[in-house]
Amino acid sequence: MTTTKPPETSYGIGETKQLTGRVASLLGQIPTWVLWFFVVVWTIPTLGLFINSFRTRDAQRNSGWWMFWQDGANGYGSLTLDNYSDVLGTSATGGLANGLLNSMAIAVVATILPIAIAAFAAYAFAWIDFKGRDTLFIATVALLAVPSQVALIPLLQMYAGGAHLTLPLIDKTITVFPDLGLAGTIPAVWLTHTGFALPFAIFLLHNYISGLPRDLFESARIDGADHFTIFRKLVLPLSIPVLAAFTIFQFLWTWNDYLIALTMIGGNRQALPATVVIASLAGEFGRLEHLLTAGAFVITVVPLVVFFALQRFFVRGITAGSVKG
């Protein structure tokens, strides 16, 4: 790689000469300008949704969201909170409050479980030596490529009726996973999310944990620390940025998940999460789709809070600081 090159060639004479004067300062500001350009472009679609969430159905359908200030004049009804009150007051599919509660129950556990399990596994793959480690690791991560939809029906069968297998030749059936009646319940969603999340979680955490400085582990081992202690006292604190990153994603995915929850819970509306409640609002043929504008914002609040809360863990130099200290 380039880093292995001697410094003389890395910093060639021609390249180090700087542009001078105003041009340089202008060029220096380009990244900031480009960044804010990205921000604006990325935000416009969401902004449109946000403004439309205050407009009536007819207004949403008939004029662009940037014309919102003329809705009244155009006869579409002026800006209103009706969409929000309809969404918050819905009684369909168990009601929104119930849905949000279920979403929370699903997302919290389905975030904590995979993080914990994956952190241990990632540590083992990175720092415990055993035969076949790399192969097992790659095989695990390769399961990322399984389209998870194909697992939905077998898992549902297992939750509904347990897993049984008939032994060949002797024709006896034994139970591998008892029929705990999990189908239609939130624990079924936990288990499913946890399993589906693990390959990516292990992949991401392993990438980070295996990059921690080797000296750290060696000095700890000389001090007589066992793997569990090293994991708890060293690896976990050092991995906070990546744990925060994964927490954000896993929380979002589980919070915003529609398909897995609906499939595992099915017709048990007491347990359905907010995404299903909101999607149901639109009705058959999407007749009331204009309500989804408000619905989308109502359920976005929680993941955004999570993002803001965890963002402060992306701090420079945690690794470097600890190595020194």
Binding site: T93, L152, A160, T263, G267, R269
Partner: peptide, 23 residues
């Protein structure tokens, strides 16, 4: 008696029936 309505009913009822968890 509890009625649950869902978007994507047509695909969902397939999954629920095949998965052994029908209403």
């Amino acid at each position: 008696i509890i009625y649950t309505g869902a978007r994507d009913f047509s695909d969902q009822i397939n999954a629920q029936a095949a998965g052994g968890n029908p209403p």
